[in-house]
Design a protein around this nucleic acid. Structure first.
Lengths: 213, 213
DNA sequence: ACCTGAACACCGTTCAAGT
DNA sequence: ACCTGAACACCGTTCAAGT
């Protein structure tokens, strides 16, 4: 066919198909050949739109981060801002857990990642946090969110009553039931942990007033 | 050569070489052929010791988790236990960041992973935490530790003063300096976050007394 | 500019063959 | 039991060739 009159591919179409494949079958299932086949073209075609597979993954990661809502910082109360950001951040990542290990390497030069970092850090500083502390708080939230989205805690245990020998693991008698309730367990732990973290921060930093500067 | 009188390989030797390769060049650098070459054998030899590459990674992951010290739970105070566990857990993972995405999928059937989960959960329950809350606390700590070890927060920003346009990202003027101080930033954020989390938990659960049951 | 097939140097894994 | 080389179906990426 060679070059068609209308391009068969676009960066947006490639990114969407890549994310769908990653969500459905995991990061390792994404190969350039497989993705190209899904898009109805041959493997090397992708290289007209992205220089490397890594650059494609960067674009996929950035569309995920672009979903994060940072507007909660607008009202000036840092607790409201932090809670809203963290919940939205977690929701965005948990919707696409297989790309989290790639994402969590940091924003690098990805625009949406930098926009989010800028808004969160700026929101904390504007609310009265000293810059060094604001950096730490951003890091903590990233740790907690990425860790919670990286892999289900509950699903980490196999769903098999005979899997965990009671003599060897005396406290894991109910662990195989976790898989069944994994969503409730994971969301409950995230929410409880987030609230504990925020209240702990407030406790340790009474000089940063709740209502903004 | 065929079969030698003394086996050339052992599971322990393979695991050690695999971990060294992962630490030095990342998870993607670990191929069965490359690892075999490093060990002075041909690729398929590894299949006499592990059924698949995944089983090998399971063994690597379990040796990392085996380094985690859970003895801090012995003294009965849950705060001491939790802090000791979390710090040791983070140290073990941060020493081998490239395997964290694999590790964080959960313990599955890995003995050291289950031993750690059993000790942490059991330690909290013995200290007076209701089982459902103890599960949550274990999940939170896993989230925070895995997220902090997964990738440096500080290294996530490129070390290039011109990388972040001040008009687009008004608050990231100093971000390129993070790379330089990454260890201090990451360890400081982890420690501050851990203390905030523990104090927040204590605040939210006053009925669990600090000294044990 | 944007697609193609052929080609290169890789993968994980299987298997028959050797001792 | 534990190693080997050959083979299979894959990879990411380059490149000359087509329109």
């Amino acid at each position: 066919m060679a070059r068609p009159r209308k391009p068969l591919l676009s960066r947006a179409r490639i990114v969407a198909a890549a994310l769908a494949l990653i969500d459905a079958e995991g990061l390792t299932a994404l190969s350039t050949r497989r993705l190209a086949a899904e898009l109805g073209v041959s493997g090397p075609s992708l290289y007209n739109h992205f220089p490397t597979k890594d650059a494609l993954l960067d674009a996929v990661a950035d569309t995920v981060i672009a979903q994060v809502d940072v507007t909660a910082f607008a009202d000036g109360d840092w607790r409201t801002g932090l809670l809203g950001w963290a919940r939205s951040y977690r929701a965005a990542l948990a919707a696409h857990p297989h790309i989290v290990p790639f994402l969590a390497q940091g924003p690098g030069r990805r625009p949406a990642g930098l926009r989010m970092a800028d808004a969160a850090f700026g929101g904390l500083v504007d609310a009265g946090w000293p810059p060094a502390q604001a950096t730490r708080v951003c890091a903590m939230v990233r740790y907690f969110v990425a860790g919670s989205a990286l892999g289900s805690f509950a699903r980490g245990f196999v769903d098999d009553p005979g899997a965990y020998d009671p003599d060897t693991y005396p406290h894991l008698g109910q662990a195989h039931l976790l898989a069944e309730h994994r969503r409730r367990v994971d969301e409950g732990a995230f929410e409880a942990g987030l609230l504990a973290l925020v209240d702990g921060l407030a406790l340790h930093h009474p000089q940063v007033r709740p209502g903004g500067r």
